[in-house]
């Protein structure tokens, strides 16, 4: 029955037009960044200078992989949290607002089961949104740039270089980690959605929490506390595009993110369980 219910939840989710806003906005943002990258000399010149200074041939490294990775940073930081929060915040609160939740809860389904189905559907959405980001980024870049090695200018970190096949693997591994970031943010919005709030409130609360965590993390005064911030661990995808890759840190962040996700779900389901569902 769980699979039937999950399939139904996916029908509901992907039957709504607003679910696709994220996919469309990603495409638009990528196309815009790509055009700016192609037609303005700035980013290419800076990259060329950096590569030449370190004894690399820019022709080998200014590739579709490099450009796709370059586009990833602003989108992963700004747009991804917004669109996954939007969907996560809708999952329960929108149904409560519309009244369909009352129809569902006149059925012999437990509240925890209902939330589990919804959470998995939200996680599938977050996964596909992250994967689509990588695929469309690479496909669009391949229209204007040749295949080649991967060069990643990780902000605040030393740059990293990979040969084409390794780079491609790490590029998609980074997207898998990005999917975990997306699922966690979706889970945070989902948790707020389980309370008696409007869908927009759940979304805004989740985004605000992410931004506050990000701001605090970037204040030099709090540098000693950096590993305590959620956003520090949400950046796990960047670790896979660094050299050398610190697998220990990757494992640490991933296990903490699993803990965060579990906590969000338990808090959300407890709040939902004790709630009275009224019209």
């Amino acid at each position: 029955m769980f699979l039937y219910q999950l399939r139904n939840e996916l029908w509901k989710l992907f039957g709504k037009k607003r679910t696709y806003i994220g996919f469309v906005m990603f495409l638009l943002a990528q196309a815009l960044i790509l055009l700016l990258f192609h037609f303005s000399a700035g980013p290419t010149r800076q990259m060329t200078r950096l590569l030449e200074m370190n004894g690399f041939d820019p022709k080998d490294y200014i590739s579709c992989l490099t450009v796709a990775a370059f586009m990833l940073f602003p989108i992963a930081y700004l747009l991804l949290p917004l669109f996954v929060s939007l969907v996560g915040g809708d999952l329960v609160a929108k149904e409560a607002e519309d009244g369909t939740l009352r129809m569902i809860l006149s059925r012999p389904v437990t509240r925890v089961r209902l939330l589990a189905v919804k959470w998995v559907a939200g996680a599938i959405f977050a996964f596909f949104l992250s994967l689509a980001l990588g695929i469309t980024g690479l496909a669009l870049s391949a229209c204007l740039f040749p295949w080649g090695h991967l060069f990643v200018a990780n902000p605040g970190e030393p740059f990293a270089i990979f040969d084409a096949s390794t780079g491609c693997r790490y590029f998609f591994a980074a997207h898998l980690m990005l999917a975990i970031k997306a699922i966690t943010i979706m889970g945070l919005a989902f948790m707020f959605s389980c309370f008696n709030v409007k869908p927009a409130t759940a979304t805004i609360l989740a985004i605000s929490l992410i931004f506050v965590s990000s701001i605090l993390q970037n204040i030099p005064y709090f540098s000693d506390f950096t590993p305590w911030f959620l956003t520090y661990h949400l950046d796990v995808w960047r670790l896979v595009l660094a050299q050398p890759i610190s697998w220990w840190k990757v494992g640490q962040s991933l296990s903490l993110l699993v803990g965060f996700n579990l906590s969000f779900f338990v808090i959300g389901s407890t709040a939902f369980y004790v709630r009275d569902i009224k019209s």
């Binding site: 029955m1 509901k12 709504k16 009244g99 059925r107």
Partner: peptide, 22 residues
């Protein structure tokens, strides 16, 4: 319930499938 609400963007058949599977 008063004023029946459904997933308007889906067909009646799909709505019935969704609700009955609970």
């Amino acid at each position: 319930f008063e004023t029946p609400v459904f997933y308007d963007y889906l067909s009646g058949w799909r709505n019935l499938e969704i609700l009955s599977h609970y």
